[in-house]
């Protein structure tokens, strides 16, 4: 066998190719996409000896099995996730010999583990990225059993790590939110955001985290008003007509027609990408 590759034997609920996404094309209607927990993707890459932006696998709730077609290093980051090679538990990073079978178990908490393979996943890039965008269909299709994933040529040396602290996933998230651009559509947006209580809905995905709970009320003047579509940033807290907020994640639409009451800053978003349905959510607004 000439090329470096791994073969997918089975996937759990969802396994996707992700990197740091394709920012810079929103004016063409292209979402940024990329890993929801980008710090974990960067860490997995560093452990495997890859550049931080190499393409990895974003594995939702475990269940992924791969067979190595070549000698390579595998590294897992994110929440604490069992890693087995040929049925035996291993620490990360670990070496795979040709024919070895790697299995990622279900994380004890959280949602998404990041598996880096030395050389990175070398599928063709679209608009500079190999990220799978579930909203617009750009990038590779979600992984399926039988897929053969080409790997690039390793460029660095894997980092030897003795102890790797997993991502902590709390039962309750307190999200900072900077109010605006449309906080004036709501009666005292800061007070409503501070007082509300929510839970992550099971209808959440890579497009956004939908929240169940307190409805945010518009001002009397804005009842029934329509907003012409306007650009959206990642982290935007959009409030549809029914009042239950959606926090947009990497595969969000580039424009939207409901008011955005505030924006969750980038460094608070990885935790949302790890929040299981039922996780309690509060906002800490900055007016």
């Amino acid at each position: 066998m000439t090329g470096r590759s791994v073969t997918v034997l089975r996937t759990g609920p969802q396994a996707l190719v992700q990197d740091l996404g394709r920012p810079g094309y929103a004016h063409l209607g292209v979402p940024p996409s990329g890993a929801l927990d980008a710090p974990s993707l960067r860490l997995a890459n560093r452990l495997a000896g890859n550049p931080e932006d190499a393409a990895c696998l974003e594995v939702l709730l475990g269940g992924l099995a791969l067979r190595a077609g070549c000698s390579c290093t595998a590294a897992v980051a994110g929440p604490a996730t069992p890693l087995l090679v040929n049925g035996v538990a291993r620490d990360s990073p670990t070496h795979l010999a040709p024919g070895d079978e790697l299995v990622l178990g279900t994380p004890v908490a959280g949602l998404r583990a990041y598996l880096a393979l030395s050389g990175g996943v070398a599928l063709p890039a679209e608009l500079g990225s190999r990220a799978t965008d579930l909203l617009s269909g750009l990038g590779p299709a979600p992984l399926a059993a039988g897929d053969v994933l080409p790997l690039g040529v390793p460029t660095g040396v894997p980092t030897g790590a003795d102890v790797l602290p997993p991502v902590r996933v709390p039962d309750e998230l307190v999200l900072p939110v900077v109010t605006g651009p449309r906080d004036d559509w709501f009666d005292d947006a800061v007070a409503q955001l501070r007082a509300g209580r929510w839970e992550v809905s099971e209808r959440s995905n890579r497009v956004g985290v939908r929240l169940r709970g307190t409805a945010l009320l518009r001002t009397a003047a804005r009842q029934g008003c329509e907003l012409p579509s306007e650009g959206l940033v990642t982290g935007a807290v959009q409030v549809p007509a029914a009042g239950r907020p959606v926090v947009f994640l990497a595969d969000h639409p580039t424009t939207g027609g409901y008011p955005v009451v505030g924006v969750v800053p980038p460094d608070a978003l990885p935790a949302l990408g790890q929040a299981r349905p039922g996780t309690r959510v509060r906002f800490r607004p900055h007016g």
Binding site: P23, H27, T255
Partner: peptide
């Protein structure tokens, strides 16, 4: 500038 997104009555600059 990372993104420059015109829309109906707005321009978003990230």
């Amino acid at each position: 500038v990372v993104e420059l997104v015109p829309a109906a009555r707005t321009v978003l600059i990230t």
